[in-house]
């Protein structure tokens, strides 16, 4: 049984400007000890997907329209708040993009670190503090015993993100959800954090759902990747097959737009047009208006479902007939 199994998750936002269908029938699973990447452009529904797992969607305007999310057999989506709270922060932790939104500026770092331990375990304050210092050391913060008595603003951006990671990991969660934890950081600090996550994951065997729009980070960190477009998962594959033989035209286009896949100075491949407006449900494949392989059938009928293509590799493109050559041809 997978650690997490999400089925047919849909989530919408009901605003004055209309109903935004942010997540549309998303299904995926995550095994114990697996690092799964979730990539996609801004607005594709990555954050909404993971926020809905943890009951963090603001309601209203948000609404979960359908779906189940079995975590070790328990459906997170139908769990009452109290039950969710006892899982959140203990068995599932989350790291947010901006550490300052989840660190309390008025509390010493030490207090924030031991809080989940005092709530969820029977540790004494003293041993909780010892554990907090040890956790800070393991995320690479030197002089942890003195540093942890400081306030968040006395730490640099990279250090705060490490404090956040320490806080997320202190209860030894089985699942870590990391929502773009390095996007705001410099590349050198990003490399430190990614290396740290890799090591901690190896040591503790936790599963990680890693959200990013950086295809480079995914290649070095994740076992498997899922690509989201307009609220749907359009491709899912082990990293090696995704980078070597992506099947969905959107994934191909995304990979082709990275400068490092081009010769220096060469014109970069781009994706024409813009992502669809999530308020209007157009028939067919959401990518069709921007897709160079679209045929008449792509613009009709229900949205294409995610279907298996090879071992562990599935995609939601109707054009199974496309050859690798056709898919990789540049404009």
């Amino acid at each position: 049984m997978p650690l997490l199994e999400v089925k047919d998750l849909s989530c919408s936002f009901h605003t004055r400007n209309g109903v935004h269908r942010a997540v549309n029938g998303v299904s995926f699973h995550l095994d114990r000890g697996e690092i799964l990447g979730l990539v996609g452009e801004s607005g594709s529904g990555k954050s909404v997907t993971c926020h809905s797992l943890l009951g963090l969607i603001p309601r209203p305007p948000g609404r979960i329209d359908s779906g189940t999310a079995l975590f070790d057999g328990t459906d997170l989506l139908s769990l009452p708040q109290a039950g969710l709270r006892s899982i959140r922060g203990r068995r599932i932790s989350m790291i947010f993009q901006d550490p300052m939104t989840s660190l309390n500026p008025y509390l010493r770092v030490s207090e924030q670190l031991i809080e989940p331990l005092l709530i969820h375990t029977s540790l004494t304050r003293r041993s909780a503090l010892e554990k907090a210092a040890a956790m800070l050391r393991s995320v690479g913060i030197q002089d942890a015993d003195t540093r942890m008595n400081r306030y968040p603003h006395e730490f640099s951006g990279g250090m705060r993100q490490r404090v956040m990671i320490a806080m997320a990991l202190i209860t030894g969660p089985e699942l870590l959800i990391a929502d773009e934890p390095t996007t705001a950081l410099d590349v050198t600090v990003q490399a430190q954090i990614v290396e740290l996550l890799r090591r901690l994951q190896r040591e503790t065997g936790m599963a990680v759902l890693y959200i990013t729009h950086d295809l480079g980070v995914v290649a070095g960190l994740c076992h498997r990747v899922q690509v989201m477009y307009a609220g749907r998962i359009v491709e899912s594959a082990p990293v090696s097959s995704l980078y070597a033989s992506a099947r969905h035209p959107y994934t191909r286009a995304l990979l082709r737009s990275i400068p490092s896949t081009h010769r220096k100075g060469e014109r970069l491949q781009t994706i024409a047009g813009m992502p669809p407006d999530l308020r209007t449900a157009a028939p067919g494949c959401a990518f069709a208006p921007r897709c160079r392989h679209a045929v008449a059938g792509c613009l009709q009928g229900p949205s294409p479902l995610l279907r298996p293509h090879a071992e562990n590799h599935s995609h939601a493109c109707l054009r199974d007939d496309l050859t690798d050559d056709q898919l990789s041809r540049n404009d």
């Binding site: 590349v187 990003q190 490399a191 990614v194 295809l215 480079g216 290649a219 070095g220 490092s260």
Partner: peptide
């Protein structure tokens, strides 16, 4: 520190700055 967008070309033990 530049992430390499190709799983086949990952440095075995990336040198990270401390």
């Amino acid at each position: 520190s530049i992430p390499v967008p190709d799983p086949a070309r990952q440095a075995p033990a990336p040198e990270v700055l401390s």
